[in-house]
């Protein structure tokens, strides 16, 4: 363990990132610039999230990483082993046992608690970026609360698809002030952003921005009066655990086009199965095709 600083980054860098995090918590939804470091992984693999995690981890923490809800995908496994090696912290896949959870594109199904921190990996932190390419202009729009453009995006959605077709990275307004990109989580997760007991931190490595939601922050998804926000998911039941209320992944299971809907949150699904819940697709429960 003498080969590395605790959690890879040097203390000065971690202090710099913590200052950005504290500023972000003080101004919920505001994007704080920070001096993002080169990390031993490519951009797009969670360099922002990893730096934020490194800055908040203590030796006593228990760490969990999920990628699209799963603990067992490449990205999740690599980051987990990275911190096992560089910080020597305990790791877990159990949502309730973790004190710091780094996530890519999901919020765990199980409600988080006050002593937990949720760290999001963010590819593009600027919600206005797709319509306004100038950074100088988007900053001004944030500072002057000129958010009409955000609704132009939703307007375009409805005019093209008949409904708001944005299904992930759905923009939200924080405490009635800043419009924020919640990272590419499905809009099903949007209602969980608001009034959450845990601290939520967002890190964008390539774009060099950190933003945050302190516990119990008001977060409202943008919409139109005649096209209200809806937290949608696939209209199915988990084939493994039978859950009706969790976000589902659609998995192709054979060459004949067979499909399985199952919880994207693997820990939640396993917990339910251990508690005796069963879905229709478990061996022995298959419905004849």
């Amino acid at each position: 363990m003498t080969d590395y600083n605790f959690a890879y980054l040097d203390e000065q860098t971690k202090r710099m990132i913590r200052r950005a995090i504290l500023k972000g918590l003080a101004i919920p939804g505001y994007q704080v610039p920070f001096a993002s470091r080169e990390m031993p992984m490519p951009y797009g693999w969670g360099t922002g999230g990893v730096q934020v995690s490194a800055a908040v981890l203590t030796p006593e923490d228990t760490f969990k990483v999920i990628d699209q809800g799963a603990d067992d995908t490449t990205n999740a496994v690599s980051i987990r082993s990275f911190f096992e090696r560089t910080a020597g912290v305990e790791t877990t896949t159990d949502t309730s046992a973790a004190s710091v959870i780094q996530t890519r594109h999901r919020i765990p199904e199980e409600p988080l608690k006050e002593d937990q921190i949720l760290v999001y990996q963010v590819p593009i932190p600027e919600p206005l970026r797709f319509l306004e390419p100038r950074e100088s202009e988007t900053r001004k729009m944030h500072s002057l609360e000129e958010y009409g453009l955000m609704h132009v995006k939703l307007y375009e959605d409805i005019s093209r698809h008949g409904h708001i077709a944005t299904s992930y990275a759905y923009p939200v307004k924080v405490e009635g002030r800043y419009v924020m990109d919640p990272s590419p989580i499905p809009k099903f997760d949007n209602p969980k952003l608001g009034d959450m007991a845990a601290i939520q931190l967002f890190g964008a490595g390539r774009e060099q921005r950190i933003y945050a939601l302190p516990p119990y922050t008001q977060v409202v998804s943008l919409d139109f009066e005649d096209h209200p926000f809806e937290a949608s998911k696939a209209d199915q039941v988990c084939g493994l655990c039978g859950a009706e209320d969790s976000y589902l992944d659609e998995v192709i299971i054979d060459d004949a086009g067979g499909r399985l809907f199952c919880c994207s949150d693997t820990d939640y699904c396993l917990g339910r199965r251990n508690a005796g819940h069963q879905g229709s697709s478990l061996p022995g429960n298959e419905v004849a095709a």
């Binding site: 319509l131 009409g148 132009v152 375009e156 409805i158 005019s159 139109f224 009066e225 005649d226 096209h227």
Partner: peptide, 26 residues
């Protein structure tokens, strides 16, 4: 805004001043 539909272009100023009813804007 060349990447936004004609309706979105005209509606932008309405949305900028707080108009939030899609049908009315359109």
């Amino acid at each position: 805004r060349m990447g936004v539909s004609a309706g979105g272009n005209v509606g932008e100023r309405l949305m900028a001043v707080g108009e939030r009813h899609y049908g009315d804007i359109r």
